[in-house]
Amino acid sequence: MFQIHKLRKDWELMPTALKLGVLMEELDETRDAHLADLTGLDTAVVTRCKKLLWYPEEYQEMMLYAEPDDRVKADFFIELYSILTDRVVARAEWYSRSKLIEVFLKKYKNRLSGFKAITDFRKIKQYISIARAAGHEDEILRRLKEFIANDNMTISDLEIDTARVHRHASNLARTVFKLGKELDALNADEFAGEEDLWGELEALLNLLRIKLAQADRRVAEVSSDH
């Protein structure tokens, strides 16, 4: 088995990735699980290393600088990876991997556009994903293009209102579904004397009728022996 030393520090990830890259080339092997078995590394570490190897050599070298103050953390490139490889972003006519890396490096290093932590990239990815789910790909690409060019534009400016509504609606739908399952399993006879429960359910029913009417939704009559 090809043993690669266990990671002790974050800055060791790029050297490990380079060793893994040599092994992948020699064996013509790219499967994460198989590479993990061969090297003794966790599968998650193999996945992270492969993301680092995706970057051009000049950026890999930034993770190897001797001086900690000059070195760029591997986590920066790992978090950025999900944005650079997003299928919506990658199809943009203005997409340039090198340009985007440089822009985000500048924003992150200088704390521009509201950047506070590496995990802020997850917010950007989330906004892109939510916009895609709501069918607003063109809008999020327009905002992202502006965000890249304008250091005064903040990460929160990428959130699209309709996308925010879609996210809220999805969360609410899950809550309603769970409540529905609980109510369906409820034995009405056992809880017959729980006046507080039935009072709240009656109030909820009235509220539901109001909201459904506001949304112009017709409520079908349900048989009592359901």
Rank of each mutant, 00 (worst) to 15 (best):
L53N: 07
L20K: 04
V46E: 02
Q126A: 11
V219C: 02
R143D: 03
A74Q: 03
Q214D: 15
G180K: 08
L144M: 13
A117W: 02
Q126H: 13
I128G: 02
D184W: 11
R142S: 13
L64C: 03
D138T: 13
E58P: 00
A131T: 05
R8N: 13
Q214S: 09
R218P: 00
G193M: 07
H136T: 04
R122W: 01
D184F: 14
Y108K: 09
L201Q: 03
T30P: 00
R217K: 13
D69M: 11
S82L: 04
V45R: 04
N171D: 12
T39H: 03
W94E: 09
A163D: 02
L20W: 03
S156P: 00
K116Q: 12
L53A: 08
T119F: 07
E221T: 12
G135Y: 06
A33C: 01
C49Y: 01
E190I: 15
H34G: 00
D28E: 14
K116P: 00
V72G: 01
L23Y: 06
K181C: 07
V45T: 15
N171F: 08
H168V: 15
E61W: 05
G40C: 09
T43V: 15
D157T: 09
N110D: 10
W54R: 07
L84N: 02
E194P: 00
D138E: 15
K107W: 01
H5L: 11
R167V: 06
R174G: 15
I210Q: 07
K50W: 06
L172K: 11
N187E: 11
Y65I: 12
Q3A: 10
L186Q: 03
R8A: 05
K50R: 14
E159N: 13
M62F: 04
K211M: 10
E202V: 12
V45P: 00
A169S: 09
Y108N: 06
P68S: 12
P15Q: 07
P56S: 08
D196F: 07
S156I: 13
S98A: 12
H226W: 08
K99A: 13
M1V: 13
L183A: 06
G193C: 05
W94M: 06
L84Y: 02
E67F: 06
N171Y: 08
A44S: 15
F191M: 12
D28V: 10
A213H: 09
D161H: 10
D138I: 10
P15K: 07
E102D: 14
F76E: 06
V222D: 00
L158G: 03
E25N: 13
A44M: 08
F177Q: 11
N206S: 10
K123R: 11
G135F: 07
L201C: 04
I78E: 10
D184H: 11
L84E: 02
V22I: 15
K181Q: 12
F147N: 04
T39W: 03
E67K: 14
G21R: 06
T175Y: 05
V176A: 10
G199Y: 07
E67G: 01
I155R: 04
A169V: 15
L207C: 02
L172P: 00
I83G: 01
D37M: 10
V219K: 05
K106C: 08
R142A: 14
M62E: 14
L144P: 02
